[in-house]
């Protein structure tokens, strides 16, 4: 049962990350997830001070807002101040992460957050964290509920806005002409991504959650020729590395989060070698 709960939590994150990662990768904004994952920190600390719990709704909202605002700020600096995307990414997230660290170390006396759990997450503790409200909500651990809600939001968004997303991902300019604001779509994708990052952060930590977002989508991009194939393959790679990585972790007594992401990394390496001719001359860079 514990294994099932852990795998369900990781699997749901793999689902969200494969989808969100695919869109961001195709819009050449994959590293935005890295920035967003690091920028979770200040929001997390502030939310924690407000609520005193680590996975309550306040924490999630504060952390997601902080993560989303980093993406917004990066886009803003890029578009309106004319700063390169890489550069604005670089200084926005490092500044926010630094602020987060300062907050942890100064207010941290009564905050149960330390650098280890921020960086590596606590996947193994997932089955022990319940809402303790003594209601039906106690049927599943809190981190799993969080994954379920965010996963559901992704599923609804994709179902109802699939055509718009696809058009946007391929050709944002055309999307604009056809009457859809590419900025609105981008922000919706980033908002959902920040929710996924926050709920994923809890289990995997800041660094690994980025791997989860990028590796399956990048592997799928190397292999696939069609849109559906890309989404499907990134889902399979995400779920496959979760299953395989977790089994290896149990067998060899490794840390499960890093083990899962390492397996995803191996999948990517394999695909990069086997399919290197597929995307040999991809030098295109869109405006963000």
């Amino acid at each position: 049962m514990m294994t099932f709960l852990i795998l369900a939590t990781a699997g749901l994150l793999a689902f969200q990350a494969a989808l969100g990662g695919s869109f961001l990768l195709l819009r050449r904004s994959a590293m935005l997830t890295d920035a967003m994952a690091h920028s979770v920190l200040p929001g997390l600390v502030i939310g924690y001070l407000f609520s005193g719990s680590r996975s309550g709704p306040e924490v999630i909202l504060f952390a997601a807002a902080s993560s989303f605002s980093s993406a917004y700020l990066i886009d803003y600096l890029n578009k309106f101040a004319g700063i390169w995307f890489e550069a604005s990414t670089g200084f926005v997230f490092t500044s926010l992460f630094a602020i987060g660290i300062v907050l942890i170390t100064t207010l941290g006396g009564n905050v149960d957050l330390d650098a280890d759990c921020v960086l590596y997450g606590e996947l193994l503790y997932v089955p022990f964290r319940y809402s303790s409200t003594h209601s039906w909500y106690d049927a599943l651990p809190l981190p799993l509920w969080n994954q379920i809600w965010v996963g559901l939001a992704w599923a609804l968004f994709l179902f109802f806005r699939w055509k718009q997303l696809k058009t946007w991902a391929f050709d944002a300019e055309f999307c604009r002409h056809a009457g859809i604001s590419d900025h609105v779509i981008r922000r919706l994708v980033l908002a959902l991504t920040s929710m996924s990052i926050v709920v994923g952060f809890d289990a995997f930590g800041a660094i690994l959650v980025v791997g989860f977002f990028i590796l399956p989508a990048a592997t799928a991009w190397l292999i696939s020729r069609t849109w559906h194939a890309m989404i499907l393959i990134s889902l399979l790679v995400g779920l496959g590395s979760t299953g395989l990585g977790y089994s290896l972790a149990l067998f060899f007594d490794w840390e499960p989060g890093p083990s899962i992401v390492s397996v995803a990394g191996l999948f990517f390496l394999g695909a990069a070698i086997a399919f290197r001719q597929n995307r040999a001359n991809s030098t295109f860079r869109p405006t963000h």
């Binding site: 195709l26 055509k163 696809k166 058009t167 991902a169 391929f170 050709d171 055309f174 056809a178 991009w221 696939s224 020729r225 069609t226 849109w227 194939a229 890309m230 995307r279 001359n281 991809s282 295109f284 869109p286």
Partner: peptide, 15 residues
């Protein structure tokens, strides 16, 4: 646009 985008001709026209 990015011509490496994993999408088929028909899907582009459908847009």
């Amino acid at each position: 646009v990015d011509w490496n985008f994993p999408i088929r001709v028909m899907d582009v026209v459908l847009m």
